[in-house]
């Protein structure tokens, strides 16, 4: 399987100050890279930098061998990223938000794809609700649905388990695993040992020094043992 994402000597942080150690990692198609660490360790900053949402302090990030450019059309086509951005069009319904993404990515039969995602994320009953009328967990589901409805060769998820009920977490882990099985690469930032064990093939522990472990060790580190 070819390498989808490569990070070499990557330093991330704010105002010139790194928040964690140097990140060196690569994710091949079909792999799920778990990223774990304590609060404030810099996991989300690493994820945001890998997704091109934030400039790195130093080092390179490449997707399919090319340096990332979040404004380039091919990059936007390849990379799907879901962060905890609670930003929605206030007057668009759940269904309309998903339709927008489906159409913007030129999916065949967007209506059917939207119905499938609504079904999967348990949003059928709320499909005509505007974001303000949704619960926090439902808004999270909508963001995840938007990230997963579109094709991508690299999926970056920042703590996707947050605000989800246990049943949805299990469904999500199956979905992530299926995405990897279909040849997609996944970067998964998580605090959930079960989700990590069910999906990840390798695991980075973010701290002052960034180290690679197998998912079992990563899950133990999350659990604090």
């Amino acid at each position: 399987m070819g390498t989808v994402l490569e990070a070499e000597g990557l330093l991330v942080g704010y105002a010139g100050a790194p928040v964690c150690g140097e990140v060196n990692a690569s994710v091949a198609a079909g792999d799920v890279l778990g990223i774990v660490g304590v609060n404030g360790a810099g996991k989300s900053t690493v994820a945001r930098t890998l997704a091109g949402r934030q400039a790195s302090l130093s080092g390179d990030v490449k997707v399919h061998g090319l340096l990332i450019d979040p404004d380039a059309v091919p990059f936007r086509r390849q990379v799907s990223a879901v962060f905890d951005d609670d930003l929605f069009f206030p007057s668009l319904t759940v269904r309309e938000h998903l339709l927008l993404v489906a159409r913007g990515h030129s999916l065949d039969d967007p209506e059917t794809r939207v119905e499938e995602e609504l079904e999967f994320f348990g949003l059928v009953g709320r499909s005509h609700a505007i974001p303000d009328a949704l619960s926090s967990g439902q808004r999270r589901r909508l963001l995840l649905a938007a990230g997963l409805i579109r094709p991508s060769s690299l999926l970056i998820l920042d703590e996707p388990e947050q605000r989800l009920d246990p049943r949805m977490r299990v469904a999500l882990s199956d979905r992530i695993a299926a995405h990897a099985k279909d040849g997609g690469a996944v970067v998964l930032v998580t605090h959930d040992p079960q989700l990590l064990l069910a999906t990840a093939s390798t695991c980075l522990v973010i701290d002052e020094e960034v180290r690679e472990f197998d998912p079992e060790q990563g899950a133990s580190i999350i659990a604090g043992s």
Partner: peptide, 13 residues
Amino acid sequence: GAESTWWLSLPVD
């Protein structure tokens, strides 16, 4: 804010 999340990520001009 909403446009940045929902529009800018699309692979379009």
